[in-house]
């Protein structure tokens, strides 16, 4: 039973981790919490489904197409709203409200033009299940786990191994200095938004397949939780986001079954509060030195 709960929790956690990376990346370069990320996650899932239902062509092709559109939405969020605000030297709070506005727009768009009900989602990665001891593991869980792992390695390579990643890290350390060094700061930020939207879209589609359903309100609560995961791990840190996501997923699963299911969201946040009281910068966050 414990093993089963652990597996459930890890699946949930790896999904959280994937979305949390998006938060962390954006936060790193812009010091802004992107409230629209949850909605973009939901949009990604819906887009794959809608394209697939409409054209009835290869699922993977629809998936790829949806990711491109999703990335474009992320790009628009930055290009047509946040970049504008940066030029006006607006406070971070304004950016935050703008992302909330985007979240409202995306959710209502999906409600109006896709569906206002909970709709079924085809599970294309269901190849049966096998058991480890008393626990049942489905192929969906295994594939989700593998995909997250691969993407993680890929993201680590992008951030720590490529020129784009180097630029990203430079911008997140000091945007002005990076600009002076000839880095296209706006380009880097746009790239980050696209990456984070694509990651959210991948998670949206996989969660849709895992639960075999999707609805337009599903972004908000997962958005909150993944935000918590990103902070728990230490914002701006990739391994932090992953660890945070996994911890929140497992704690939620175990808490829901061993203590009370009605408090499941509370466990996630309780862990978060306890951790950041002792480690004010999260698990992997670096202490920021404030200078006058």
């Amino acid at each position: 039973m414990f093993l089963q709960q652990l597996i459930n929790g890890l699946t949930l956690g790896s999904i959280y981790a994937l979305i949390a990376i998006g938060y962390s990346l954006v936060f790193g370069v812009l010091q802004i919490v992107n409230f629209a990320n949850g909605s973009i996650y939901m949009l990604g899932g819906f887009l794959t489904l809608v394209l697939y239902n409409k054209f009835r062509i290869n699922f993977l092709l629809c998936f790829a197409l949806a990711l491109i559109i999703n990335g474009f939405v992320g790009f628009c969020l930055d290009r047509f709203a946040l970049r504008h605000l940066r030029q006006k030297k607006a406070t971070k709070l304004v950016g935050l409200i703008t992302t909330m506005g985007f979240a409202t727009v995306i959710e209502n768009f999906v409600m109006l033009f896709f569906s206002n009900a909970t709709v079924p989602y085809p599970n294309k990665i269901d190849f049966g299940s096998f058991s480890i001891g008393s626990a049942v593991v489905s192929s969906t869980q295994v594939i989700i786990f593998l995909v997250v792992l691969v993407l993680l390695l890929l993201m680590s390579w992008v951030v720590y191994g490529t020129k784009v990643g180097k630029a990203m890290r430079a911008v997140s350390q000091n945007a002005d200095a990076a600009k002076l060094m000839g880095i296209d700061v706006n380009g880097v930020i746009a790239m980050t938004f696209i990456l984070s939207a694509v990651l959210a879209g991948i998670s949206g589609t996989m969660v849709g397949m895992y639960y075999q359903m999707i609805d337009f309100t599903s972004g908000f609560s997962i958005g909150m939780k993944t935000m918590a995961a990103a902070v728990l791990g230490g914002v701006g840190s990739l391994p932090g986001a992953v660890t945070g996501g996994l911890i929140i997923g497992v704690v939620e699963s175990l808490g829901a079954s061993y203590i009370s299911s009605a408090y499941r969201n509370a466990f996630a946040f309780a862990v978060l509060i306890i951790v950041i009281l002792f480690l004010p910068n999260g698990l992997f966050g670096k202490e920021k030195v404030t200078k006058v």
């Binding site: 709960q5 309100t217 299911s261």
Partner: peptide
């Protein structure tokens, strides 16, 4: 007997694991 928050809880696996046992 256990409760969940409708609309927010999508993952019932933790509860169901117990129920099935």
């Amino acid at each position: 007997s256990n409760s969940f928050v409708s609309g927010e809880t999508k993952d019932f696996s933790a509860l169901l694991t117990e129920v099935i046992a």
